[in-house]
Design a protein around this nucleic acid. Structure first.
Length: 103
DNA sequence: CCCCTGACATCGT
DNA sequence: GACGATGCCAGGG
């Protein structure tokens, strides 16, 4: 069976999948595009529960401050993946005005 | 049902 | 820019 919550997760994945290589989006932005205006935390949880090796470009999702929000060593891995796509980090953060995905 | 916690966001100090 | 408080949504004990 399917309920509204599963549909929301599906929309979240759909949005994240559209973020172009070399660009980033914030949790709040993804939530809004997925039809969840104040669902930033919801998006973070959806990302946290993705299985490793997922095809979803989860690393392109960062917080509103332009920083990676993953605890532990995950943040460094995320920054490595983004830099590999050309996204530049200055003082540990991304200039959203420049790298934010604007659909 | 109450309380705490988290890959969030925003505001005030 | 760092911090704490507040609001928000969902899980878990």
């Amino acid at each position: 069976m399917s309920n509204a919550l599963d549909d929301a997760d599906e929309r979240i994945w759909q949005v994240v999948a559209q973020i172009p290589r070399g660009r980033v989006a914030t949790y709040g932005q993804v939530a809004a595009l997925a039809g969840l205006p104040r669902g930033g935390r919801r998006v973070g949880r959806a990302m946290a529960q993705l299985p490793q090796g997922s095809a979803l470009p989860w690393h392109r999702v960062i917080n509103a401050a332009g920083r990676t929000a993953i605890p532990g060593a995950g943040g460094e891995r995320q920054r490595r993946l983004l830099r590999a796509e050309g996204v530049m980090f200055v003082n540990g953060k991304v200039n959203l005005q420049r790298w934010r995905w604007c659909p």
